[in-house]
Amino acid sequence: MMNYAAMLHNLPNLNELYFFVQIANAGSFTKAAERLGVTTSALSQNMRSLEKHLDVRLFNRTTRSISTTEAGEKLLAEIAPHFLAIADAVRHLDEIRDEPQGTIRINTSEIAANLIIYPKLQPFLLANPHIKVELVIDNRWVDIVAQGFDMGVRLGYAVFNDMIAVQISEPMKMVLVASPGYLKDKPLPKKINDLTNYHLIGSRFSSEHSQLEWEFMDKGQKVGFQPMPQFSINNDLRTQAALDGFGIAWLPEIRVHEELKNGNLVEILPQYAYTYDPFYIYYPNRKGNSKAFQMVVELLKFKK
C-alpha cells in the first residue's frame, strides 16, 4: 500500500513550487515579486531552497534575464496545470458562496406572513430558485435563537433590545369592523363600553391564553376592553366571520383595507382606533450572514 504520509513528507515546500511557477510565467524575479507582494531577495532565497531540495537547477540566470532550464521546463509543464486546477476550484467555491442560495427560516405572525411577507416573497422566490424560505406561523413570542430560526417578525414593541431590527411595514392601525348586514337596524355604538351590547368576534393566541384584549386610544390614553365573544378563532377567519355577519371584529386595517373601501365592512368607533408600532424583522447578529439572508432582509425592508 502506498505510504501517502511518507510521500507528502518528501515533497518540496508547496509555496516554493508556487513561487517557481509564478517566476517562470513572469520571466522575471522582479515582476513575480511585484505580483506576489514579496521581495525579490525572498524569491531568490526560496528558489535556492527548492533547487537544493530537488538537487537540480531550475533557472538559467544572467544579470539581465532568466530562463528555465530543461529540468525547469519539465517541472513547469508537470505542476502548472495542478496549480491552475487549485485556482479554479477556489474560484468555484467563491461562485458558490456568492450565488444566493440556502434556506432562511422565519418565525412570524399570521398577519405579517399573509399581508407583508408572502406578497414580496412570491416573485422573489420565482426569480431565485436556489433560495428556500420556511415560514413558521406562530402568534406567540418565541426565542428564535433557541428554536433555530434565522429571523423573526413581530411588532416593534415585542422585539428585544439585543436584536437587530429592520422595519418592514407601516405602523399597524387597528379597526373595529362589522358587515352592513349585521349593523342593519342596530344603533351604532358610541362608546367603547357599548360593545358589550353586540356580538363580538374574538381571538386567543393559544389555548393557554385568555381572550385577546382589544386596545383603544381614549383622550390620549391607551385603554383596554375585554371582549366576551360569541365566536372566537385564532387565525384570519375572523375577517371572514365579520363579512359573514357574525358580529364586530377588531382587526388590523391593512387586513380589511379593501373590504372597507368597497363597503363590505364598516368601521366602528374610528375615533378610538389604536395604532401599534410597525412590524420588524429581527435577528441576533450582523456578521456572517449569507447572501441569501441579506437579500431577504433587503427584500422585506420597508420602503416609503
Rank of each mutant, 00 (worst) to 15 (best):
F216E: 06
S210I: 04
Q230E: 12
E208R: 11
L243F: 04
L212R: 11
S203C: 10
F279M: 05
K261M: 09
T239I: 14
F279N: 02
G224Q: 15
Q271P: 06
D236L: 12
S207E: 14
N234V: 00
D277I: 05
Q240L: 08
T275R: 10
I248N: 05
L212G: 00
I281L: 10
I248D: 04
Y274F: 15
D244E: 12
N285R: 11
E215I: 13
S232Y: 06
Q271W: 02
Q226S: 05
G263D: 12
P227F: 12
T239S: 07
Q226N: 07
L269C: 06
L212F: 08
F205C: 00
R255H: 04
L265R: 07
F205A: 08
L200D: 03
E215N: 14
W250H: 13
P229E: 11
I248E: 02
R238M: 02
R286G: 07
F231H: 08
R238T: 06
I248P: 05
Y276S: 10
G224S: 15
Y272P: 07
G224M: 15
K287F: 15
R204K: 10
Y272N: 10
Q221H: 14
E208K: 12
L260R: 08
L269M: 06
Y282A: 02
L260M: 02
G245A: 04
L200P: 01
G247I: 05
S203A: 02
Q226Y: 14
Y283P: 09
R238G: 05
M228Y: 13
L212C: 02
M228L: 10
E215K: 14
Q221W: 10
E267A: 11
R204N: 01
F246H: 08
G247V: 03
S206P: 01
V256S: 13
D277N: 08
M217S: 12
I248S: 01
S206G: 04
L237M: 14
E253F: 13
D218N: 15
R286W: 14
I201Q: 00
S210K: 12
G220R: 13
Y276P: 05
K222T: 14
G263Q: 04
R204P: 00
Q230F: 06
G202L: 03
E213C: 09
F225Y: 15
Y280Q: 08
N262E: 13
N234K: 10
E259D: 11
Q211C: 03
N234P: 02
A242R: 04
G263H: 07
V266F: 03
Q211W: 09
Y280M: 03
Q226E: 13
L265S: 10
E259Q: 14
E215R: 15
E253W: 05
E258V: 09
R286E: 15
